[in-house]
Amino acid sequence: MSKLSTHYESYKFIQPKSEKAAFSSIQQFGQLAPIIVYPTVDKRFEIIDGFKRYRALKKLNAQSISASIVHLNSRTVKAAMLLLNQDTGTMSDLEEASIVQSLHTEDKLSQVEISKLLNRHKSWVSRRISLISRLDTEVINHIKLDLINISIGRELMRLPRGNQEKIMNIVMDQNLSCIETNKLVDGILSSKELNNNHIKQCINEIIANRSHKRNLPQKLKKTNTINGILSIIEKNISYVSNELSKNGFSCIPENELATIDLFIDKIKKSFEILERTIDDLQKDARQ
């Protein structure tokens, strides 16, 4: 562990849910997959994939870590970071954009050269560079430090770069959710200019709406929960029904049967939650 470096970690954004899931998995089952590293000139090893596993093991005070060694240069390291996460979908579009922009500005590659290196169409490269260039530097830094999440960053991106930091600070001060940030940005964009009074009005409306939702009667909240559960059950039953009607139960392949079993488990769990919610409503009615 002491020989590992994390220079390329700066291209990845910390996402609390993923971090927590990785930590729980390693705590329960241990390290199931090796991290990917490459040797450096100073006889250390630079991590290019497996940062969550590394951080989790570090928290658990692990003395060693399983790793696969590859031999790459600066350009191919960044390409490998993208390719290793391409199939799993674990890298966000902003993280992809951060790496593509680095290849363009730091490694001095043209968009055509990047598209060949990554085996991607040049329009994909152009979109990623455009994406990161539309975000204010301070907003990017806040996302990397997990001070705001990526979804809020995407909302702020809709604003001119010069206004993003100011609105980001308001979002943080008021502890706005992604949906509330979306409403705030919509309100700002509906005005011809960034007016402080207009922003204040938008914030007041959002906070008033938040208070209204918190004061909803408990019975109505539970009724909404029941409606949501029934909708989930209906979708899962519909899936199972469609799968069974395709070929008949005896002709379903083994891998599809496993998927159907998973959906049936979901239906069972949904019914359990539904039963508990109805019990709560009945208790409330008796009081």
Rank of each mutant, 00 (worst) to 15 (best):
F263A: 05
K235L: 11
E275K: 10
V240K: 06
L257R: 08
E256T: 01
E254L: 12
L216F: 08
K269T: 05
V240H: 03
F271A: 11
L262D: 10
L244K: 12
K221N: 03
K221M: 12
I252G: 02
E256L: 01
I226R: 01
T225L: 15
N236A: 10
S245H: 09
T223F: 03
E254Q: 13
S231D: 09
L257G: 01
S211Q: 12
K219M: 09
S270V: 01
T277E: 03
D265I: 13
F263I: 06
R276D: 13
K266I: 09
N236L: 12
N255F: 08
C251Y: 13
K246M: 01
R276Q: 14
P217N: 12
I237V: 14
I273P: 01
D261A: 05
P217G: 08
I233K: 01
G228L: 12
S245P: 00
E256I: 02
T223P: 00
D261Y: 08
K213W: 00
E272N: 10
I273M: 05
K269G: 02
N227V: 12
E272V: 07
E234F: 02
I267C: 04
T259A: 09
K246S: 00
K213A: 06
S250G: 01
E275S: 08
I267D: 04
L274G: 00
R214M: 10
T225S: 11
I226L: 04
N227M: 12
S231W: 05
N215E: 14
T259H: 11
S241D: 10
L262W: 10
N227C: 07
Q218L: 13
I232H: 07
S211K: 13
R214I: 07
L244Q: 11
S270N: 02
P253M: 08
T277C: 08
G228N: 11
R214C: 06
N242Y: 15
T259N: 11
T259C: 07
T225W: 14
L257V: 06
K268D: 04
S238K: 09
Y239I: 12
D265L: 14
N236P: 07
V240S: 03
I226P: 00
S211N: 08
I273T: 07
S238R: 06
I233G: 04
E254P: 00
A258F: 09
N247P: 01
I237R: 09
F271P: 06
N215S: 05
L257I: 07
T259K: 14
N242G: 11
G228F: 13
K221C: 06
K268G: 03
H212W: 15
N255Q: 04
I267V: 13
L257E: 04
I273D: 03
F271S: 11
A258L: 13
S250A: 03
K222L: 15
L216C: 10
D265Q: 15
E272L: 13
I237W: 11
E243P: 05
T225K: 15
